[in-house]
């Protein structure tokens, strides 16, 4: 049976969700997986709620449509919970990963998802501010994603991250990003 993982990203434009969706897909290539990542293009203004999608599979991916029943939902901005039904269509054995300071139990209550759905929380913005010095939570969120789901390999992701960053930045920035990934990997809590 083909192993297909579908990830839906919710974010505000400018938070790096599209980039993260793509980098996770690219990381999957290192494990010889098939992949797909695309944004849902809408009005391109900073702060607008946006969606992006990642598919990872052991077999070629044929479908070209939005993801309505994700295995994993990633929310880069917890204020979206009030305005977007981020849990819509999530599989019963799925995972919802949220960038928030709120404890998982409270977030779960707010989302109103069934007990079988795991809710994972991490303060990715706080970690990003500490390490990268900017509130760009996408990179630490991938660290948390890897801990919560093992969808891609941590070292492969960090390797790709370094490769991408080295085009524009020095080792200091790479180290800061790596630190953000490691901290989110350690600090994510699942309920």
């Amino acid at each position: 049976m083909p192993q297909l993982t579908e990830i839906r990203w919710h974010a505000r434009a400018g938070q790096g969700a599209v980039t993260a969706a793509k980098v996770v897909a690219e990381t999957a290539l290192a494990a010889d997986q098939y992949l797909q990542a695309m944004p849902e293009y809408g009005p391109e203004r900073m702060g607008a709620p946006i969606k992006a999608f990642t598919r990872i599979s052991s077999d070629p991916i044929e479908i070209h449509c939005n993801i309505e029943n994700p295995d994993i939902v990633i929310v880069l901005d917890d204020s979206l919970i009030d305005i977007v039904d981020v849990a819509e269509g999530v599989h019963d054995d799925g995972v919802i990963l949220i960038n928030t300071c709120t404890p998982p139990a409270e977030v779960r209550a707010k989302l109103g998802v069934s007990d079988s759905v795991r809710v994972a929380c991490v303060d990715a913005s706080g970690i990003a501010l500490d390490t990268i010095k900017r509130d760009i939570p996408n990179t630490p969120m991938v660290g948390a994603l890897i801990k919560a789901t093992s969808v891609v390999d941590l070292e492969a992701f960090k390797g790709l991250l370094a490769k991408n960053l080295s085009k524009k930045f020095g080792q200091e920035m790479i180290d800061a990003n790596w630190a953000s990934v490691d901290r989110a990997f350690e600090e994510v809590t699942v309920a």
Partner: peptide, 12 residues
């Protein structure tokens, strides 16, 4: 090629 679906999606 299909706009956005093929032009802007990451694919293998």
């Amino acid at each position: 090629l299909d706009g956005f679906i093929t032009t802007h999606s990451i694919d293998r």
